[in-house]
């Protein structure tokens, strides 16, 4: 890596929380609207986002570029780390190892998920009105459901534990007590976020999204 690695590493740490962490929370809430209000509320949330002004630039600057940088530089960071949990089986060292493992899983999952949804929109194969139906299709494939579950749990852990590390790396939580408290808060965040995602995954399996899926099939035959 060229340049001063202090700045590139700090940028990596910052982007993980702002904007990616904030986007991650937004994504969890949008999905959760599927559980709370079914297809109607979910599609409303999706539209609310897509109707934002300058949506292309918002996506590019707040999502695409940060994911690309955080993901690629993160792979390099994972490569420069040893996993020595067999010699030092302490909780924080396990979290260190899982942070890197979950990061790699999340990066692969995000690429696959983007291919299934966002790239298909870009290619004109999918419209934003069909998101609920598309998710219904994916979630009713048992293999996909398991892969999504793994991907979602990895991403949620990576976000929550990354938040803990962010607080240390920027010098916000300094002493052992502060770091212990923040690790508990981050574990609570992990549980809440995981529940939000899993409930929305279950909601997408529901029959109300199936009728949307059937309508999608009819539309496809007509076109």
């Amino acid at each position: 890596m060229s340049g001063n690695s202090y700045y590139s590493r700090k940028l990596h740490s910052l982007l993980g929380v702002i904007p990616l962490g904030l986007f991650f929370i937004e994504h969890a809430l949008t999905n959760y609207s599927a559980f709370e209000g079914g297809p109607e509320k979910f599609q409303k949330s999706v539209h609310g986002l897509h109707d934002l002004p300058l949506i292309f630039f918002l996506e590019l600057i707040l999502i695409w570029l940060p994911i690309l940088y955080h993901g690629v530089y993160g792979l390099y960071l994972a490569f420069t780390s040893n996993l020595n949990t067999s010699r030092f089986s302490y909780g924080r060292n396990w979290a260190f190892a899982f942070q890197r493992i979950s990061g790699v899983i999340t990066f692969i999952f995000v690429i696959w998920h983007l291919w299934q949804i966002r790239v298909q929109v870009a290619l004109g194969q999918l419209t934003i009105d069909e998101f609920g139906a598309k998710m219904h299709e994916i979630m009713n494939n048992p293999a996909f459901f398991v892969l999504y579950l793994i991907g979602v749990l990895a991403a949620t852990f990576h976000f929550s534990n990354g938040l803990w590390a962010f607080l240390v790396s920027w010098g916000i939580t300094v002493g052992p007590r502060a770091q212990r408290v923040s690790s508990r808060v981050c574990m609570v965040i992990f549980v809440i976020m995981a529940v939000l995602f899993i409930l929305s995954m279950a909601a997408f399996r529901g029959d109300d999204f199936a009728s949307a899926s059937a309508a999608l099939g009819t539309l496809r035959q007509l076109s």
Binding site: S5, Y6, R9, K10, L77, S81, N84, F88, Y90, R92, N93, A95, F96, A97, Q99, W164, A165, V168, S169
Partner: peptide, 11 residues
């Protein structure tokens, strides 16, 4: 190779 290399494993 400064402080940024710390990954907070706390070993």
């Amino acid at each position: 190779g400064g402080i940024e290399g710390c990954g907070n494993s706390q070993n």
